[in-house]
Design a protein around this nucleic acid. Structure first.
Length: 138
DNA sequence: GCCAACGTTGGC
DNA sequence: GCCAACGTTGGC
């Protein structure tokens, strides 16, 4: 059973363009326990939206998990993990945070409920709606 | 630049 | 173990 996620990155730190250029990229740097649990729950083949926080505030692309959780090499201590994700395709139309907030159907979305959570789940229903809004079919 | 949300730290 | 203080994130 495929699951869906949303991962956030500040484009100044790591942008969608860099993800596309690199193809497969380790998703490191998560230092939040809730986000870590979500990373651990990811399975190979799961899809995730790539969201630009701060600058942009929009879902800009789709990635796929190609390697499940393993110890984060950038962590100096603790049992932090990362996964490897691969760029799949960009959204034809980026879906902005404003557009998501404007639609009451997304009230339960983890992105809205916990704005600071950098890795959160997306339900299959929300995934389908967001893909439609983005003009893509995955 | 400000502020709300929320995680972490440290005193008790 | 509680809670106030503080730091960080992220939207506005």
């Amino acid at each position: 059973m495929i699951k869906y996620w949303l991962i956030k990155s500040e484009p100044d730190a790591f942008s969608w363009d860099q993800q596309v250029k690199n193809g497969v990229e380790p998703w490191t740097g998560v230092r939040n326990h809730t986000a870590k649990l979500n990373l651990k729950a990811m399975k190979k083949g799961d899809y995730a939206f790539f969201y630009h926080s701060n600058t942009g505030k929009e879902i800009i692309g789709i990635v796929q998990v190609v390697k499940e959780a393993y110890p984060d090499p950038t962590a100096e201590s603790g049992d932090w993990v990362c996964v490897d994700v691969k760029a799949v395709k960009p959204l034809k139309t980026p879906v902005t945070l404003a557009a998501i907030k404007a639609d009451p159907r997304f009230a339960e979305l983890a992105l809205l409920r916990q704005s600071r959570l950098s890795v959160g789940p997306v339900s299959a229903a929300h995934w389908t709606m967001l893909c439609e809004m983005g003009g893509v079919n995955v």
